[in-house]
Amino acid sequence: MTRRNTILLVALATATVLLFFLHLLIGPVPLSAQVVMDALFSGSVADGSSRIVLGVRLPEALTAILAGSGLAACGLLMQTLFRNPLAGPSVLGLSSGASLGVAVLMLARPVWIIAALPSDLAVVIGSFLGAIGVLLLIMLADRRMGDGVALLIVGLMVGYLCGAIIDVLQVASPGSALKGFVLWGMGSFSSVVNDRLLWLALPVITGLLAAVLLMKPLNALLLGDAYASSLGVPVQRTRRMIMWTTGLLAGTVTAFCGPIAFLGLATPHVARGLCRTSDHRTLLPVTIVCGAFLALFCDLIVKLPGVSGLPLNAVTSLLGAPVVAWVLWSGKRWARTV
């Protein structure tokens, strides 16, 4: 990593930590910085404000960090895997597949699964399987067509197809289940509390570690499969490992936070614009920290007094869509590359 990019990474990490504390300060109940710090650092004070900080705000901030960094890393892996700057969990239908998995569990309620597993775990597994299923399809399409535009179209079609099946399931399901599913679909970092946070954290941290371990072969893959193989990368095995990692990251985050739009696609572009390299040993850490920062930032807007009730997905789309469009529009050389 160059000196410039080391400084950049440290600055970004510092900004993320500051945003994290700002996130803890803001909410419907006004709390002073002093109260928040006391609640955080002087143990579990058994009063209301400490319960708000430790029981509500801290889990939400941590969820935002995990989800943001997980989706961002997932997007970067997909862009390198498909050598396509427009690849991302929401674009290629991974989020739709995960949604379908969750819809099947929340709306169709197959009794045999719900009886066998705790419901949170069942949702995670459903979401993961949905994401992996779509990913398998996309990889098959990639091998068959080998064309970036065709691949994106297949991803969109898979997304529409999953959406249509979800619509059918929605019509046929009872109102209470439907409400839960619709709320989940708007995206939120606030529903991951108590021990559910652990279920989110374990797979996401595993996926991020796997991504870090893949940095070297990812760099070789930038030159294409033939060069990567001649550099000693077992290409097929590496592609499968990247695929499982993206499925794990997108599946887990989607299960707990809903299908979050644009974070996975836009963040690697922001990171590339900042550090101006495709070297994953620099780009991956910058992308992960950028993802955490952007997720916290979007969630902060959702929580701002006066806009409460705004769906998280609306904010990520409002910010993400123009970023992606601008990146492509600007014609900068880092814009249209992986």
Partner: peptide
Amino acid sequence: AAQRARHIALVLTGRPQAGLLDVHTLVAL
């Protein structure tokens, strides 16, 4: 593949789409 890579180096025809790699990083690959 790893053993092969220590015996044979390959230069393919044409230039690869190397993303945003500077020459030094690319040679270091």
